[in-house]
Write a protein that binds this DNA or RNA. Sequence first.
DNA 1: CGGTATCCCGTGTGATACTG
DNA 2: CAGTATCACACGGGATACCG
Lengths: 152, 152
Amino acid sequence: MKKLEPRDLSRDQCPVMKTISTVGDRWILLILRECFLGFKRFDDFHDNLGVSTSVLSIKLNTMIDRGLLYRKQYRNEGRRSRFEYRLTGMGWDLIKVVIALMEWGNEHLIKKGEPTLDILERGTGQDTKLQLINEEGGRTDWYELKLRVIEK
Amino acid sequence: MKKLEPRDLSRDQCPVMKTISTVGDRWILLILRECFLGFKRFDDFHDNLGVSTSVLSIKLNTMIDRGLLYRKQYRNEGRRSRFEYRLTGMGWDLIKVVIALMEWGNEHLIKKGEPTLDILERGTGQDTKLQLINEEGGRTDWYELKLRVIEK
DNA sequence: CGGTATCCCGTGTGATACTG
DNA sequence: CAGTATCACACGGGATACCG
């Protein structure tokens, strides 16, 4: 384990950069939000996001290629078969990214009186927020943070 | 407090969309990463990120306009004055977004043997991770989540 | 050193038309 | 309904030159 200068992971090596290259796209992040809200079908995404069908088609296929979604065929009684788009485990793990974006937006960009999008615990209905937790289960204060490059 | 259909905050009203419009830019997120690592000067950003000076100039000004950074003049003994770019409170609050991107990248995109970027507690050196915490201080399991639109 | 202005090109995006 | 194909256009981005 060796300490690197941050410039050593300047471009392609940095996990932040890699993640941005994978999901740092206006439409991909918004499609993910729709998935977390429970939507699964092409027209749901189209209607809710107002994205053009051509772009939506490209984005969904890109997300499948990148392992964020998979396409699942299903058939309702007596109807023809349909496809739905479901989150993979990797895609589901992006919920922390979407929640972080959501919390920041609620705090800094939403004016009074405007609706917010919030997350609650399903069972208790309690509000729940992202926090940094250390190995002992305690909260880490933000000013106590130190970012470090670790070479395995 | 009234429940809305998610489609009601389809475009400009949604906090996720607003946040993406504000910071959902490859360069802005990476400049933020540099700020969290402690860098402050134009040439630091330029050298570390490999971004062209023209784009960097535009992005820094955009970030100032959007309230993420401010420019501070300083002067070392007998030298001419310089500017540095510092995070505002609003900019600093984006650290959860950057950490979420980083954690996901470390988990899903970094191959064995490649360096990762990690965060530690400054005092204890302990590893620290983002988690969802409910009102009583307990952890929320991811499958217990429910996103809901709240009108104030 | 610390930037800004200009040019040029590739990509992202929406509109529209089309297919099974 | 569930998409794909094509086209036209705006915008982001790098290279380069320039400025105080």
